[in-house]
Design a protein around this nucleic acid. Structure first.
Length: 608
DNA sequence: ATAGGGTTAG
């Protein structure tokens, strides 16, 4: 008797196939397996959790009269795999054997159906079966149904089940909450969160990840803070979302805090956490710390590698990114379409035209990946950035899909850099067709005309913008000081220290003019992503942020700024000068990449 | 001896 319970214990802990086989052999030779059927059940259950479907099926086939528990275990074993719909046929088998399904059967079947995106009809028929056996209102089944409908985007069906259910627990609320979060309805998600009779850490995580996915990273960090104040325990899953929020915001100190927390609690850096940490450090301007995390990781999947590659590319360290890519290939990891965006981006910033071409070709010839519009975009960027404007234009005209605004924008950046007004005008005309509501495009057109002396056309373009009601995204720069984010929007004077900031800016301007700086208002072309030149150039949001950064941080500390648009050339020039005058490193993340300003120079070599 | 909710890269 004690020996059987000993084996029960052993099996419960065992997930390793080899050990399972050993125990199995032992039980068979000693005849224990036949004495105690429950041991066989335990064995089957452990086999199912060890994810070895073949072995599990073998065990199952040895059972003469499997009961509902054995069938459920088999359904569970299948539900986790790519062929999860096999569990439906096990269900059919069960019915044929004259066995009644129970409340555990349906959640398992529904899980199998959510595994396969196109299995919505099968899931519906499982629902029908649950109704037929009058098990649909059991809380486990009901919760699984809510989850199933919400995953498939049928949120109304999920809500109906939720509203009519007599029996709701935290799990039901969490399912509904994450359903709204998933479709981006954060107002309803927050409402549910507030109304919940009981919350657990999963409720908090669901809310946080919802905010992050909607781009409301500040709210996400706010909720995380509240979570800590209310002493709710958080898991590494929560932290993955939190790190993602830090990455979006460039919340360097808060991100570092999370890393410190992981270290001091000796939490192992999983692939998920590692990816988030690498991305966070890269997007906060600390590529070298990202590299440290990368090098310290035991296990690396494609996402880990491509996040690191993209991180290096963002910082203009194209050669290292490329090395890493070849390393990855050697490690036997097969790149996907997203990984290629990272490497192509790296080629662009390192000016590696031939390498870029080769890699682009290898995409389809070696890996069988059909290039998407983003990949053509990288090629246009690569060529345009290196002066081959015509070739870039030919790519746009011959690629197999419709060009989007981003791809024209890449060509535009080249036109601006190489002062090609004629091609620029052509590009802008295409952009207006594509995005008539984007005010930036009209500003751009107007500037092009102004630059070529066609002042009347320039005025008309401005008027057109006003009559069509197109609006331009306001420039916004943020800076984190002692863990708090400060935002500066162009023309906005609501910051409590705005007076001091403006005084500081005056000081900066005095130093600038001593350096012989004159405000560059004659820039020929204005990039679509740049802030509107009509607003006083001196008030561009990053200038305020830099002034504030100089005011609020001590010497030797790098100033880190995140900007929502591209840096304009005047701000770029000014920032270079400031970095020398004040002997300060300034790191600016703009829409597309990083600029590390140091000693009057920028890491982008003045091309962005 | 069995079930359900939160997870990262463009």
């Amino acid at each position: 008797m004690t020996t059987t319970s000993h084996f029960h214990h052993l099996l419960k802990k065992c997930t390793n196939l080899k050990q399972l086989n050993q125990i199995h052999a032992h039980l068979t030779t000693t005849g224990l397996l036949h004495l105690d059927v429950r041991l066989l059940g335990r064995l089957l259950s452990s086999a199912a959790t060890s994810d070895n479907l073949h072995y599990t099926s073998l065990l199952f086939s040895q059972l003469h009269h499997p009961n509902i528990f054995f069938y459920n275990t088999m359904i569970k074993a299948h539900s986790k795999t790519a062929t999860s719909l096999n569990s439906i046929s096990i269900y059919a088998q069960l019915l044929r054997a004259g066995i009644l399904p129970d409340i555990y059967t349906f959640p398992l079947l529904l899980k199998a159906c959510t595994q396969v995106p196109e299995a919505f009809p099968q899931g519906c028929s499982v629902h029908g079966q649950a109704i037929k056996f009058a098990l649909d209102s059991y809380i486990y089944v009901n919760n699984a149904l809510i989850h199933f409908y919400s995953i498939n985007g049928h949120i109304k069906d999920a809500r109906k089940l939720f509203d009519t259910s007599k029996d709701l627990d935290v799990v039901s609320w969490n399912s509904m909450l994450s359903a709204y979060a998933r479709i981006g309805d954060m107002a309803t998600a927050k409402k549910l969160f507030d109304e919940m009779p009981e919350r657990n850490s999963i409720s908090w995580s669901a809310l946080i990840s919802g905010y992050v996915q909607c781009g409301l990273s500040k709210e996400a960090l706010g909720i995380f803070l509240r979570m800590q104040v209310e002493l709710v325990k958080f898991s590494d899953i929560t932290l993955v979302s939190v790190l993602s929020a830090c990455a979006h915001l460039g919340a360097h100190e808060q991100g570092k805090w999370v890393h410190g927390y992981l270290k001091s609690n000796e939490i192992e850096v999983s692939v998920f956490l590692g990816t988030s940490l690498i991305d966070m450090y890269a997007k906060c301007g600390e590529v070298d710390l990202a590299l440290d995390v990368f090098n310290g990781m035991k296990e690396r999947n494609l996402l880990v590698w491509s996040t690191m590659i993209k991180g290096l590319a963002m910082h203009g360290r194209g050669n290292e990114a490329l090395d890493l890519f070849f390393h990855m290939e050697k490690a036997g990891i097969v790149p996907d379409d997203i990984a290629f965006i990272g490497v192509l981006c790296a080629c662009t910033h390192a000016g590696l035209i031939d390498q870029g071409r080769q890699i682009f070709d290898s995409m389809s010839s070696v890996y069988g990946i059909v290039p998407k519009v983003e990949h053509y975009g990288c090629m246009v960027d690569l060529l345009a950035r290196n002066g081959m404007l015509n070739e870039a234009r030919i790519i746009i005209e011959t690629m197999p899909m419709q060009p989007d605004a981003l791809i024209w924008g890449a060509l535009m950046a080249g036109c601006r850099f190489y002062q090609n007004v004629e091609l620029g005008e052509f590009v802008v005309k295409n952009l207006i067709q594509l995005e008539p509501e984007n005010g930036g495009v009209y500003v751009l057109l107007s500037n092009i005309y102004a630059a070529s002396g066609r002042l009347e056309d320039a005025r008309k373009a401005r008027e057109l913008m006003e009559t069509t009601g197109a609006t331009k995204i306001a420039g916004c720069s943020s800076i984190e000081i002692r863990g708090k984010l400060h935002e500066f929007i162009v023309g906005d004077k609501s910051h409590p220290q705005i007076r001091e900031i403006l005084v500081k800016w005056e000081e900066i301007e005095r130093f600038l003019s001593l350096e012989g700086y004159v405000c560059n208002k004659t820039e020929v072309l204005l990039d679509i992503d740049e802030e509107d030149k009509e607003h006083a150039l001196a008030k561009h949001s990053e200038k305020l942020a830099i002034a504030f950064g100089l005011l609020s941080s001590s010497d030797g500390v790098a100033i880190r700024i995140v900007k929502n648009l591209r840096v304009c050339s005047d701000c770029h020039h000014v920032t270079k000068l400031i970095s020398r005058i004040y002997n300060r490193e300034i790191v600016v993340r703009d829409r597309t990449r990083f600029h590390h300003f140091k000693d009057g120079k920028c890491s982008c070599n003045d091309y962005w």
